[in-house]
Design a protein around this nucleic acid. Structure first.
Lengths: 344, 344
DNA sequence: CTGAAATTTGACAGCGCTGTCAGAAGCAGG
DNA sequence: CCTGCTTCTGACAGCGCTGTCAAATTTCAG
């Protein structure tokens, strides 16, 4: 049995193909009763519009392009980031009968912008999702802009104001984590800052300060140590903190790697986590669940961000003119085993 | 200036559109001189066929589906694997004006097969690349088979005989690595085996034995210790081996993680690598280049395998009937800093 | 040279859908 | 029951390409 086409549906519903088309595309001006008949016929025949035909007739594809910097090109193990974005975008695409076109590219290449331009010209996607760090490069943004293709920027930190973008609330969620630690009775909550150049990570430090204040705790420079995002720096910071006369009862690290370092040092020093020390991280990398005790952390909503981005593109509301307000997808606390009530 | 279509090309080249179509699709029976004229016109107008129109007219899409088990679904940090496959497949697709459709799925889900079937019915891809471990599941293979879609199985170990698949030569390359170590003067070359369930890893152990024999060295049970693919097991095995009265001068681990563990232990024990101990791994994960000293290892040609798979699919030679012989893409030795001449 | 076979080329009808635009139906108000 | 309006529906022409099949051209044996 060959797959049903728009004529079959029209015949069964007793309408013209154009009306079926209207229903399928959610166009206005279709009587409710008519729409119902058509919907029923669609269901009965399990009709699915042929994408190629739609694309051909409408001069635009139902493709969403996901453009990201490709870490494999220079061997960074950040691929989890990419997989998550892909997942999110795919989810949105599937439920909208759209397809996802992935386009890894190396931002160090001279002609990334030109490559992007030709990709767009060739595939004429309905929209582009531009991941960080590409999303922060004026050259790239300009190139996409020039093609007139709608696009959404995925920025790990706060979205900026110029064009539509989706970000997350690092600062607020750090504050939340801090409040959570305070609510467990911790008075001395230390913070390990991350690499200075990382904007999102700086926001987390601000959030930590907010959280202290909101919990009625005093911020103290003495409880802040500087890491550089690596596990090793986390270890070094933990050693500094835990060998003090009056060590903190909780350590909040600006990322999971450093938090993992803290836990490792605690093990070595015979400090029980979470009985004697609570440890929290940020990012919710795969490692967070795999270490012991499993790490309490803040989950970056990368998947959701990408999904929202794709949805926005599919809705077609990211057009050139539309000055749409940036969106923020909230990060969420993942309470696991590494945090607990403050020791008395 | 709107983009050129097949009529523009035909006019410029002084032929019919059908002839242009023939040239574009590499169909036979076009005179060389004609083809040349058409190619020139294509170049001049920078013509690119409209995929939607081709798909619509030809009833098949120019999509290649890449189907793989999605580690993010249950948080394994194996994503580098996926990224590499994607890269390879993308390379092939780009040069053939095809698009890559990615389809991560969770093999633990009950209805993976059904999902796959509906994906195929909906998008009608020109071919499917099926990655391990999905490629070894009869249920999945049957489901794809039933749709009549050409597919290639990507298997990390030896390709099997039943249907077209692409694999790599774990055994031969392990032998090669072993011979390389022997050629550096090592007489006591230890091997750390991997997790028993991993077929490819078992092949590596066989390769090690082959290599010893080919180098005129005697295989000894005493030089073999069992790991489980993890860094930690690598560390444990290294401790066992290095605390012996007569420790090996080279350790070949069945994967990079375990090799990294060996190097870590060597550091701790004050054993210089490669001066006092050569260490080799297998896989060439991102980590291999990042540790110090950089790890000598065997590179799995994942990217190439995926590329070959996509090419085969695009060539259209993986059809149902065509009993095509499995292909093997050779793995290659990556000599880095962790191996050197045997200590005297 | 000639005729038949082999090779190369072209005309044209769709593929399944959307956009345009005209026509039908519904709905007030008189 | 008609007018003038709005709301809804349908006929039909493409979109750019490929498949079919017949026509044109070339090739080659005799």
């Amino acid at each position: 049995m060959p797959r049903a086409n728009i004529f079959d549906v029209a015949k069964l519903a007793g309408v013209s193909i154009k009306t079926v088309s209207r229903v399928v595309n959610h166009e206005p001006n279709v009587r409710a009763s008519t729409k119902e008949r058509v919907d029923q016929a669609i269901a009965e025949l399990s009709y699915r519009p042929d994408q190629s035909a739609r694309n051909l007739a409408s001069h635009r594809s139902h493709l969403i392009g996901l453009v990201y910097d490709d870490p494999a090109a220079y061997e960074l193990p950040t691929s989890g980031y990419i997989i998550k974005m892909q997942q999110g975008a795919l989810t949105a695409c599937r439920s909208a009968f759209s397809e996802l076109l992935i386009h890894p590219c190396n931002y160090r290449t001279k002609d990334v912008a030109a490559q992007l331009t030709s990709l767009i010209e060739e595939t004429r996607p309905a929209g582009i999702i531009l991941a960080a760090p590409l999303s922060n490069m004026p050259k790239i943004v300009r190139a996409i802009d020039a093609t007139g293709t709608p696009f959404v920027r995925l920025s790990p930190g706060k979205p900026d104001e110029k064009r539509f973008s989706i970000g997350t609330n690092d600062r607020e969620s750090s504050a939340e984590m801090t409040r959570y630690l305070a609510s467990l009775g911790h008075k001395r909550i230390a913070f390990i800052t991350g690499h200075a150049s990382h904007k999102a990570v700086a926001n987390r430090f601000l959030g930590y300060q907010d959280g202290l204040q909101q919990s009625g705790l005093k911020f103290s420079e003495r409880l802040v140590v500087a890491g550089d995002n690596s596990i090793e720096s986390g270890e070094a910071c933990a050693e500094k903190l835990l060998t003090r006369k009056q060590p903190p009862t909780a350590i909040f690290a600006a990322n999971d790697d450093m938090a993992a370092g803290v836990i490792r040092v605690a093990h070595r020093m015979g400090v029980d986590v979470p009985e004697q020390l609570s440890v929290a991280g940020f990012d919710d990398i795969a490692l967070a669940r795999m270490i012991h005790p499993a790490l309490t952390t803040v989950r970056q909503p990368l998947t959701e961000m990408a999904q929202r981005a794709a949805e926005a593109l599919i809705e077609g509301k990211c057009g050139d003119a539309s000055e749409r307000a940036p969106e923020t997808v909230p990060a969420t606390l993942q309470i696991r085993e590494s945090t607990g009530p403050a020791a008395r």
